[in-house]
Design a protein around this nucleic acid. Structure first.
Lengths: 237, 237
DNA sequence: ATTGCTTAGAGAGCAGTGCTCTCTAAGGAG
DNA sequence: CTCCTTAGAGAGCACTGCTCTCTAAGCAAT
């Protein structure tokens, strides 16, 4: 089918993009709570009621920004990891893990408000529609899974032994492991999850300022050290 | 000095307590964003301008709730750990660590809005005044430090070897370690920090619903397993 | 080309918010 | 009893999200 684009269509998608751009800037500069449809409309040069032609509600604007944020984060992470591979080959999972971790941290520190929107307190009364956010929202975990899985396969990482998983958990994780190409089993899935949570715990504490003001080089060194501990937790050397 | 309490004084502190109680309930039921001074005033049976006699601003109300939240969390954690000690003695740091972790998780799941206020996205434009929040805000870490430190001292936990800390970090952490009674050195402080971050990463992911809807027994088992991995990271067996 | 549906935007309006101001009445100390 | 302080009332300002109705322009079919 030919799919015509009338001038109106083009104007619409352009206005839409402009709205997201304006909202993103306001989010960056003033935080999520200060994000206002009226302010966006004002900046767009349009009366307040008019943006409701484009965005049905404030929550919907947030969803737009959530999707946008997940996508940008995933792209930053992918770019960092792939650039590393480009340069050093795929043989160093530890280095790749560190690269991934630092990419997440750097991105979060650069845009704390969006980071908070993605990984912080959920906006009350608002639930991100899974069908729109799931795909972009899982890209980083999937990349992390790829890095760790490769390490586990080729022996660069060996999962430390622990007590066996309880059955409820094992069966759940096994079915989840099906979706991966190769050998990760339930134990690997559990560890992947813990690494993921620990990494974001580290980043969140720093982005959200949970421990007062650490000066930059100290914070960086601490994060670096944290990545090493997390890697060790996963059996990665 | 005699410190008289006039009827007015008593009425004031009582009204103050009532305000916090109402706000807390509203926070629990509708989340931080929906917390409104006017709503609190309404429920207090007073005209909207009147609560400004008690609370100078909305942000200040939030501070009140932050302090209140930190205190309640710390009390829940302390109660759990101390109850465990009461029952089993102080000889099992692993069990104490798990008790502490579960206490944090349970508390967070029971009052997600307050948990989010404490550990989630900071309210933009609002900075918790350190002189009021620091003391209650550090109680849980200090308890965690106590548990781990005891384990490190009596050999129940042995810090895994890693690459030495960079100097900037080491000196910073060493001076921080001064504040503790006994042997923890910079490496221990770093690990304490990572354990703390990993624990809250785990809890936050669950409280904030970062991974869709896991059914309860699975989530519990996963968390349990996560605690084991974190403990292993700290060299705790 | 004219008809007729769809759309972008304007404008007014509602109910709610935080916060400030002024005024009244009661509390309490000298 | 006097005089200062305080709790609360009430009006008002500037802002929010969102809805409604109306006008003018886009666009497709006849």
């Amino acid at each position: 089918m030919p799919e015509k684009f009338t001038p109106r269509d083009r104007a619409r998608t352009q206005t839409m993009a402009e709205i997201v751009a304006i909202a993103r800037r306001q989010l960056l500069e003033q935080g999520a709570a200060a994000l206002s449809l009226r302010a966006v409309a004002r900046e767009l040069g349009v009366v307040s009621s008019a943006i409701y032609r484009y965005v049905p509600s404030r929550d919907d604007l947030l969803t737009l920004l959530v999707v946008d944020g997940y996508t940008r984060l995933a792209e930053a992470v992918d770019a960092a990891v792939l650039a590393h591979r480009e340069k050093h080959g795929v043989s160093d999972p530890m280095a790749e893990f560190k690269t991934l971790g630092h990419a997440v941290r750097t991105w979060g520190l650069r845009d704390p408000a969006t980071y908070g929107l993605l990984f912080g307190t959920p906006v009350p009364g608002y639930e991100a529609p899974a069908e729109r956010t799931n795909a972009p929202g899982t890209r980083v975990v999937l990349r992390l899974a790829e890095v760790l899985t490769m390490a586990w396969i080729d022996g660069a990482a060996v999962l430390p032994e622990g007590s066996p998983l309880p059955d409820v958990l094992r069966s759940e994780l096994d079915s989840l492991a099906q979706e991966f190409a190769a050998p990760p089993q339930a134990d690997h899935m559990a560890m992947l999850f813990h690494v993921w949570a620990a990494l974001f715990g580290l980043v969140s504490f720093e982005v959200f300022g949970q421990f007062g003001a650490l000066n930059k080089p100290v914070a960086e060194a601490l994060f670096d050290n944290g990545l090493l501990s997390i890697a060790a937790m996963a059996g990665l050397k």
